[in-house]
Amino acid sequence: MPADSPFVPAAHEPVLVLLEQDAHGLVRPRVADPDVPHLRVTDQGVTRGDGLFETALAVADEAGTLRMRKLRAHLGRLASSATALRLPAPDAAAWEAAVDAGLRAVEAASRPAPGARLSVRLTATRGPEATPGTAPHPTAWVLLTPVPAPDEAERRAGVRVLLLDRGIDSTAPEHAPWLLTGAKTLSYAVNMAALRHARAHGADDVIFTSSDGFLLEGPTSTVLIARHDPDGRRRLLTPLRQKGILAGTSQAVVFAAAHAAGWRLGYGPLIPADLEDVDGIWLASSVRGVLPVRAVDGRETPVDPTLTARLQAWLDADGDPGHHVSGDPVTSDA
């Protein structure tokens, strides 16, 4: 294939879109071969984990047209992570163009069936090591990978989780912002180690706690808790973001829908005792969706398939999260 010919992806294979600067400094998308090298060994995303990412879900509609869910929320969180890292990542328009180029390339190659699903991962690094005082040249790309439908048996049965101490206290976001507790960075080795620890000890997943005893989040998910107030009205809760967790895009969509349905909302702060006497506990994430928790540290918790289906339907509807995605708590009676 000539060097200037556009790359044509194979059907049902991952699609890679590079975000590259042209001669005028404009960032443009280019569909590229994912099976050939594109990243330098000196790239700081590899050597130092210095970068950020977002993982979203794209789903094909009845006509086979793919659309990335929660686009605005993911791009907003990516921009917040870039600000925290002081990383000059591409702007929202450039990412949107790259995602669209990838989705259209998948459609052209595979003709997706209704309901087909893709993981859409947006990644930006600080780029190759540079001499002190020179501007970084970030590396950025979008990778679109087919993913199977959720395991409905797992969704019905629920997952077992361990509470694990993350090793930092809840005041870290205020007194140590360089820990980047609210940014989605490439430094996920601790998260993956926590999942391996849980599986080695008979569990499926993890809910982190702060060293001073507050509930935080899962390694790749946000925690949701439902319970009834004394007056019988249902309340949906999630740990307080200001305690050092990532603002959950899935949680924001579900909270907005719950608010519209008349549920009360709560943003913590929460402690492990708040996982007792509940209607249900879930781990929410973009690709896996809403998974119920059936046991915490070996103690059984209720699994309500009807509630799980309702939360998942709200997430699938992909409604506008509005102010619920801002990172600032909504009043508890909203």
Rank of each mutant, 00 (worst) to 15 (best):
V27M: 11
L52D: 06
V106T: 02
L18A: 11
G102C: 00
A153W: 04
P37K: 05
D50K: 07
V59P: 01
E107A: 07
P37V: 09
T181Q: 08
G268M: 04
M192G: 15
L215H: 02
A334Y: 10
T306R: 14
A261K: 05
A79G: 12
G127E: 01
D43K: 06
S221F: 07
A252D: 06
G268C: 05
H323L: 15
E129P: 12
A194Q: 03
E276H: 15
A130S: 13
S170L: 03
P9E: 03
P132K: 10
A172V: 04
V46K: 10
A257M: 08
T331G: 14
L265E: 07
A32H: 03
G102K: 00
D165F: 09
V190R: 15
E13Y: 03
R264N: 08
H201P: 03
L87H: 03
E300Y: 09
V59D: 02
E96W: 15
S80E: 15
D229F: 07
E20Q: 12
T222Q: 10
V36Q: 11
L179C: 08
D22N: 06
A183R: 02
G322V: 04
A200I: 05
G76D: 11
A92W: 04
G218R: 05
S210I: 08
G202A: 09
D277V: 10
T222Y: 12
V15L: 03
L103E: 00
G49K: 03
P305M: 01
P14I: 03
Q251V: 12
G45Y: 05
V106G: 00
V106D: 00
G133W: 06
P230L: 04
D4S: 09
L270H: 09
H24Y: 15
V303E: 01
E129S: 13
T238V: 09
D328N: 14
T306C: 11
G115H: 00
I245M: 09
A63R: 14
R234Y: 07
A32D: 06
